[in-house]
């Protein structure tokens, strides 16, 4: 017995859309770069949830393998992103993204 046999797939689509939108809101709303990274993680997880829901719905394990690859990419992204953030902090003493408008030249 699985939840997918009881709960319509539309509910999972709706839940993923709401979680993705919360991630987008975080990216637009906050100016602390660490919170923006966390919002990106939230968006990735919304997509992961939908992939797993459809994988179970269609009884196809390829969707769950995609989730593994997304996790690997997310781990790489976080490692490099936080390293960049550390060097930004070392130069500007802040993680405020508005300090980075010096790139405009």
């Amino acid at each position: 017995m699985s939840a997918i046999q009881i709960i319509p797939i539309n509910w999972y689509i709706l839940l993923s859309a709401v979680l993705f939108t919360i991630g987008v809101l975080g990216v637009l709303f906050r100016r602390n770069a660490i919170i923006i990274f966390m919002s990106v993680e939230l968006m990735l997880n919304a997509v992961n949830l939908l992939l797993v829901a459809f994988s179970t719905y269609l009884s196809d394990s390829a969707g769950q393998v995609f989730v593994f690859f997304i996790m690997a990419v997310a781990a790489a992204e976080v490692a490099v992103g936080l390293a960049i953030l550390m060097s930004v902090y070392r130069n500007t003493k802040s993680t405020d993204i508005y300090m980075l408008n010096k790139l405009k030249g």
């Binding site: 699985s2 046999q5 394990s61 390829a62 769950q64």
Partner: peptide
């Protein structure tokens, strides 16, 4: 859903087969 529901799809055996055969 075209396939009949298979409760073993999320188990490590099936995932490993898909991962190392197709991906």
């Amino acid at each position: 859903a075209t396939n009949t529901f298979d409760p073993n799809v999320g188990l490590i055996e099936n995932l490993g087969k898909t991962l190392f055969k197709e991906f």
